[in-house]
């Protein structure tokens, strides 16, 4: 039976699995390293599909439900494809006090995305971060790994144009 190209089990979607298997080998197939493995797997595959979770569970000899339980617990893990870039707006207390809420509203309007969603062109995934520890530079916005400080809607427009 041919697998639909949209299915998670399609060979195209599984092409990164050997790389992930290597990672699991590096961790000695140790179940207590599950979180580090999931981080690496998400880095490689872009997201942790149900099929991938099953794969990891099999490799670590864990029940699927346990792996899935960990994936659903931690906010860093995503079960849906993510955008090319992740925008995280900090809504920690300091940023909130200095206008973080307005930045969120502006992004939702300009990019036409809701929280946790990816733009229709797959470019950006938009999330709210709790506090990224750059309180001295509030309000802060992270795009991928870089933190941008003292953001305003105007600066944000200029920044997004660069991507």
């Amino acid at each position: 039976m041919k697998t639909s190209v949209h299915s998670e089990k399609h060979p195209e979607k599984r092409k990164k699995y050997p790389q992930i298997k290597n990672i699991i080998d590096l961790y000695d197939h140790n179940a207590s390293s599950l979180i580090q493995i999931l981080h690496a797997a998400q880095e490689v595959n872009g997201y942790l599909s149900v099929d991938l979770q099953q794969f990891i569970a099999d490799e670590l000899k864990l029940p699927f439900s346990q792996v899935s339980g960990v994936v659903s617990f931690y906010s860093f893990f995503s079960t849906t494809p993510r955008g090319e870039h992740t925008i995280r707006v900090c809504l920690g207390t300091a940023c909130y006090v200095r206008g973080g809420k307005r930045i969120v509203e502006h992004l939702m309007k300009t990019l036409r995305v809701g929280l946790g969603e990816t733009t229709s062109d797959g470019k950006f995934t938009f999330e709210v971060a709790r506090c990224i520890g750059s309180c001295g530079l509030a309000p802060a916005v992270m795009i991928d790994d870089v933190v941008y400080k003292q953001m305003t809607p105007i600066k944000l427009n200029e920044l997004l144009a660069r991507f």
Partner: peptide, 11 residues
């Protein structure tokens, strides 16, 4: 873990 919003000492 330093999760408190507003805390950035440990980092």
């Amino acid at each position: 873990d330093e999760g408190d919003p507003g805390a950035f000492m440990d980092r």
